[in-house]
Design a protein around this nucleic acid. Structure first.
Length: 819
DNA sequence: AGCTAGGCATAACGCGCGCCATTGC
DNA sequence: CTGCACGAACGAAGCAATGGCGCGCGTTATGCCTAGCT
């Protein structure tokens, strides 16, 4: 063992020789044996070319049970009717799926199967046999990890199907259910069930979506609508028994329903290119595929660090991690708020933190401990001092591991980008794009890893120095731009940095057209870059025109990048349109208003539209789905310090029905219902379904005053001016008082309000006797009177609608019309 | 005896603080 | 070899910032009672 003289406190060099792995490591390696074979296949293709591996077999399955969701039926009762259905995809036949899985594989639907047995134990036996026979590489479905698989294993246990829980590829390795809890700042706390299926990667689509996409709702229905613009039909568990006990036809219908639930995850997997992107990530970071769904960011960096350390014959030290105080992060330049009707250039440091670490050779192995300078008699030109006062040797003395990792990642990213440019096949383009994105993410999380104080190898000297350099650089950039681009230096106007966050500055350069701004922006970026150590580089990225700057981390603007003539998109950051904790009504309204203001340049039109929407709201013409607010349940009820609407509702729902209540980590949807004045908001939250079923009135005043008013004011004020914006508010208020008094008057007479199914307008009871109580085109408003039958009618309607949907051919399954 | 002002209690309101969810980079 | 009890270890990217909301606290408004004055 050689003491590492200059640097790297705990890093030791390993003399050549063979080493035995400690027993416990060996154990875990044995468990990972099959995963490692995956790594070999996926992670180490020959340089620069795609490796051909065997076609992947992907199994998607879903079960339906008549029991209440999540509640296991009593074991001694007659078997619940279950259908386990699966869709298997493999082979190379169907062009529809041809392009799904790359890396030399393609797949297609070759068979689908619905298992339907009289006896539950026979069903379970057949299912597990089926899995073993078709031998899938990847098992997918929706929430299979926490519901379907555990449910099946538990049922098998109850039904004494002893051959069942061997779902992996290792003989005699029993699949068991383990509870695990995963906590990270990124994802919050999640409680999961883990079932070992050695050699088969469980690729639960729900988990993928939770990690990669920020959605308002994660039900399969919402997700498939979001990505495929296609609804799935829900089968009420209450009617499953009837369908199963009915005729051939009804059973077939049930089977088709269920089959679709197995298809959807597959189609989503394909559309979102999950497998490809995850394989790219696994390749780049060198971790098994299933780690990407089961573990956090740290393991990826550790894996890369170990790879790099191995090359230099180093082993990684074990350090005790203890929580310390937070360190200072990045600077956000104080925004000069307002509406800018001139082009605003945005200059960005590309990969700021990775490039800082590379430029200054920041690494565990280059950090100089206090006193090391004297001890080793280093010359001042051998090391640098960071803004936080820490010292690191230059790469001429020793090159750090982290810069090397980052260099690999970024150069690989550059290669991927170059290949992307050469590639003509749009599908391969997407693959390469996924690859370069994965590399970027990996590069960024290296910095985060050094700052993770509850981690494997925290090193605040590095992370603090990185953010310190970053702070200096953004200040310097601002200063440079504002000092060069002035009237005095012969430019058209004094440039002004109006905003900046971490690695970007927004500059008002004073030129009037987008193309001039682009030109000047490019020049400025190049000039500023020359003041910094390579590979640090400031890049011109885009022009915003016009630009609405509301606050720190909150702005909107038209985004010009590819062309100076047409905008690429409307970019909204931090505003209600992109936030998930308000209702869609607010998001849509703000979005439309912004479009009218920024694209159509019609602020008064925006105001008119806002007024229309508000009057719709107050007249109850807004669909309830537009008023649903969702918030995540991030901890258990007793861990919350204060009272909150979604937490209180979750508790109330638990008392009502423990099976359907939201769990830890779920997003709780709710609406605010009417109540006496002065009642706190957390008392007024209610489950939207419950509201619909019981026809409970919505608190429209709350939605106007607490949801719409402030965001609207925020976007209108900078454009219309304070007084004008307030006058808009004034008109709204007048409008509101008139209308609410009307509604209030009605409510004094009737506690339950009737609403027209067609137009959702509130109906006066006297008016129902008239010929046309409301102004919609609904043919039979009198059906209102049969409120008690409404539920069954709606059910019939939804069934009919489903049939129609089928006849339209919007489903890929064969048409099932019982006419 | 009736009216009024003052004092006290309570409701109402505004404000600052901390918690929480969420986003930006 | 299996089952059980016990203990150790495992493992979790970062900070900056906004805005909504509950809650406590202080101030103000209101209402009621009573004493004093006419």
């Amino acid at each position: 063992m050689v003491d590492n003289d200059i640097v790297g406190c705990n890093w030791i060099e390993l003399p050549a020789g063979k080493y035995r792995i400690r027993k416990e490591c060996h154990m875990s390696l044995a468990q990972l044996e099959v995963d490692i074979s995956w790594v070999d296949l996926i992670n180490h293709p020959a340089e620069g070319e795609w490796q051909k591996i065997a076609p992947l077999r992907v199994l998607s399955f879903d079960i339906e049970c008549a029991g209440r969701r999540g509640v296991f039926p009593e074991p001694d009762k007659d078997p619940v009717i279950q259908i386990a259905n699966m869709v298997l995809r493999q082979g190379e036949k169907d062009p529809f799926i041809r392009n799904v899985f790359t890396l030399g594989t393609c797949a297609s639907i070759v068979g689908s199967q619905v298992l339907c047995f009289e006896k539950e134990d026979a069903l379970l036996r057949a299912w597990s046999d089926f899995v073993r026979i078709i031998d899938p590489d990847i098992i997918t479905g929706y929430n299979i990890q926490n519901f379907d698989l555990p449910y099946l294993i538990n049922r098998a246990q109850t039904q004494k199907v002893h051959s069942f829980p061997f779902l992996g590829r290792m003989r005699n390795m029993r699949s068991v259910i383990r509870d695990s809890s995963f906590q990270s700042k990124q994802m919050g706390r999640r409680e999961n069930k883990v079932i070992n299926t050695e050699g088969r990667v469980q690729f639960d689509l729900l988990q993928v979506l939770l990690r990669d996409y920020k959605l308002r709702s994660y039900t399969l229905n919402a997700v498939s609508y979001h990505f495929l613009q296609e609804q799935k039909e829900d089968v009420q568990h209450s009617i499953i028994t009837d369908l199963q006990n009915g005729s051939e036809q009804t059973r077939r219908r049930l089977a088709v329903y269920c089959l679709k639930d197995a298809y959807l995850p597959l189609r989503l997997l394909e559309k979102l290119m999950c497998v490809i992107n995850y394989m790219e990530m696994a390749r780049v970071t060198g971790v098994p595929l299933n780690y990407l769904l089961l573990r956090g960011q740290q393991i990826k960096v550790v894996s890369q660090l170990l790879r790099q350390a191995m090359k230099q014959n180093l082993v990684m030290p074990v350090v005790k991690s203890e929580g310390g105080e937070d360190y200072t992060g990045a600077t956000v330049i104080e925004p000069v708020k307002g509406y800018y009707d001139v082009p605003i250039a945005t200059l960005d440091f590309s990969s700021l933190y990775p490039s800082i670490m590379m430029a200054h050779n920041l690494c565990y192995t280059t950090l100089l401990q206090s006193g090391a300078v004297d001890k080793h008699g280093l010359n001042p030109e051998d090391f640098i001092k960071t803004p936080t006062g820490d010292c690191f040797v230059k790469s001429s003395v020793r090159k750090g591991l982290l810069p090397e990792i980052l260099e690999n990642l970024l150069s690989a990213r550059k290669r991927a980008k170059a290949e992307l440019k050469k590639e003509t096949d749009p599908f391969k383009q997407k693959v390469l794009d996924g690859r370069q994105l994965a590399l970027k993410v990996s590069a960024n999380s290296v910095y985060g890893f050094t700052g993770a104080q509850v981690g494997k190898l925290p090193c605040l000297e590095i992370s603090q120095s990185v953010t310190g350099f970053g702070r200096q650089m953004i200040e310097k950039t601002k200063q440079l731009v504002e000092s060069k681009y002035t009237l005095a230096n012969g430019y058209k106007a004094d440039a002004k940095v109006i905003y900046g966050d971490t690695d970007s500055v927004m500059c008002k350069l004073g030129v009037q057209t987008v193309s001039e701004t682009m030109e000047l922006g490019r020049e400025a970026a190049e000039w500023v870059s020359s003041h910094f150590t390579p590979p640090i580089k400031l890049e011109f990225e885009k022009v915003y025109f016009p630009y609405l700057l509301i606050n720190k981390k909150r702005y909107a603007g038209l985004y010009f990048s590819s062309s100076a003539n047409t905008h690429d998109k409307m970019d909204c950051k931090g505003i209600e349109t992109v936030r998930r904790d308000n209702c869609p009504l607010v998001a849509n309204l703000i979005n439309t208003c912004l479009q009218k203001i920024l694209i159509d340049r019609d602020p008064m039109g925006a105001v008119e539209h806002a007024k229309d929407v508000i009057s719709d709201l107050l007249c109850n013409r807004i669909d309830i789905s537009q008023l649903v607010i969702t918030k995540e349940l991030t901890r258990t009820a007793d861990e919350y310090a204060g009272k909150q609407a979604h937490v209180e509702l979750a508790e109330r729902m638990r008392k009502r029905d423990p099976g359907s209540a939201p769990n830890l980590g779920d997003r709780v949807p709710y609406v605010i219902i009417g109540a006496a004045k002065g009642v706190a908001a957390y008392m007024k939250s209610e489950d939207p379904i419950y509201v619909l079923e019981n026809n409970i009135p919505i608190d429209t005043r709350y939605y106007l005053e607490q949801q719409l008013a402030k965001p609207l004011l925020r976007i209108f004020e900078p454009i219309l001016g304070e007084t004008k914006a307030e006058s808009v508010q004034g008109e709204h208020t007048r409008c509101k008082t008139v209308l609410t008094s009307k509604v209030g008057g009605l409510m004094a007479f009737a506690k339950k309000r009737s609403t027209c199914i067609g137009c959702k307008a509130t109906l006066n009871h006297d008016a129902i006797a008239e010929e046309r109580p409301c102004f919609c085109l609904s043919p039979s408003p009198y059906s209102l009177l049969q409120v008690s039958h409404l539920g069954s009618l709606e059910e019939k309607f939804s069934r009919l609608w489903t049939q129609c949907q089928r006849c339209q051919g919007s489903l890929h399954e064969d048409v099932l019309c019982t006419r």
